Amino acid sequence: MTKLRLSALLDDKPVKITVELPAAVHRDLVAYAEILARTSGEATPPDPAKLVAPMLQRFMATDKGFAKEKCTTQR
């Protein structure tokens, strides 16, 4: 079974932003959503746009340089 970095998406009050993504990134988001649905047993894949925030959260949470600087600037 494939082990993805994301799990079920939590329902949270969003802040709307608009971004442009390269077509290749969008295709990968669509593929990721399809794999996520298949591995979690969901009938339909989530909207690929809903994957962006959890992916960014995960990226920032595991970036040691960011965590170090964040702690320094919040003192």
Rank of each mutant, 00 (worst) to 15 (best):
Ile35Cys: 08
Val30Met: 05
Met55Asn: 10
Ala67Trp: 01
Leu21Lys: 01
Pro54Asn: 11
Asp11Ser: 10
Pro48Trp: 00
Thr62Asn: 13
Gln74Trp: 04
Pro46Asn: 06
Met1Glu: 06
Val30Lys: 11
His26Arg: 13
Ala8Gln: 11
Met1Arg: 09
Pro54Met: 02
Pro54Lys: 06
Thr62Phe: 05
Gly41His: 01
Ile35Trp: 03
Arg58Thr: 12
Asp63Gln: 01
Cys71Pro: 02
Thr2Asp: 04
Arg27Lys: 10
Glu69Asp: 04
Lys50Gly: 03
Pro22Trp: 07
His26Tyr: 11
Thr39Met: 05
Phe66Ile: 00
Ile35Pro: 02
Leu36Asp: 06
Leu21Gly: 04
Met55Ala: 13
Ser7Asp: 05
Lys13Ile: 06
Leu6Asn: 04
Thr73Ser: 07
Thr73Asp: 05
Ala37Leu: 02
Thr18Pro: 07
Asp63Ile: 00
Arg5Leu: 12
Met1His: 07
Ser7Arg: 11
Thr73Gly: 07
Ala43His: 14
Ala31Gly: 00
Val30Trp: 04
Phe59Lys: 09
Gly41Cys: 05
Lys3Met: 03
Lys13Thr: 09
His26Pro: 00
Leu9Phe: 00
Lys50Val: 13
Phe66His: 14
Met55Tyr: 04
Val15Asn: 03
Leu4Cys: 05
Glu34Ala: 04
Pro48Arg: 00
Pro45His: 13
Leu21Met: 06
Val19Tyr: 04
Leu56Cys: 15
Leu21Ile: 00
Thr72Val: 05
Gln57Tyr: 10
Pro46Phe: 01
Thr62Glu: 15
Gly65Met: 01
Ala23Glu: 15
Leu6Lys: 03
Ala49Gly: 10
Arg38Phe: 07
Pro22Lys: 15
Thr2Ile: 14
Pro22Leu: 09
Pro48Ile: 03
Pro48Gly: 12
Glu69Gly: 01
Ala31Phe: 01
Thr18Lys: 10
Glu20Cys: 05
Thr44Met: 06
Glu69Thr: 07
Val30Arg: 08
Gly41Asp: 05
Thr39Cys: 09
Val15Cys: 02
Pro48Glu: 02
Phe59Ala: 06
Arg5Asn: 10
Ile17Cys: 11
Thr39Arg: 03
Ser40Cys: 03
Ala61Pro: 07
His26Asp: 15
Val25Ile: 12
Cys71Asp: 11
Lys68His: 13
Thr73Tyr: 10
Met60Lys: 06
Ala31Cys: 03
Leu6Thr: 09
Pro46Trp: 00
Asp12Thr: 11
Leu56Tyr: 15
Lys3Gln: 06
Pro48Gln: 01
Ala67Phe: 04
Leu29Cys: 04
Thr44Tyr: 08
Leu4Thr: 12
Cys71Glu: 09
Ala49Pro: 03
Arg38Leu: 12
Lys50Met: 14
Cys71Trp: 10
Val25Thr: 14
Ala23Tyr: 02
Asp47Gly: 04
Ala8Trp: 13
Ala8His: 08
Gln57Cys: 11
Lys50Ser: 15
Glu69Tyr: 07
Glu20Ala: 14
Leu51Ile: 04
Thr39Lys: 08
Ala67Glu: 11
Asp12Arg: 14
Leu29Asp: 08
Met60Gly: 01
Thr39Leu: 09
Gly65Lys: 00
Ala33Asn: 02
Asp47Leu: 14
Pro54Ser: 09
Glu69Phe: 08
Thr72Tyr: 08
Ile17Lys: 11
Lys16Asn: 08
Cys71Phe: 14
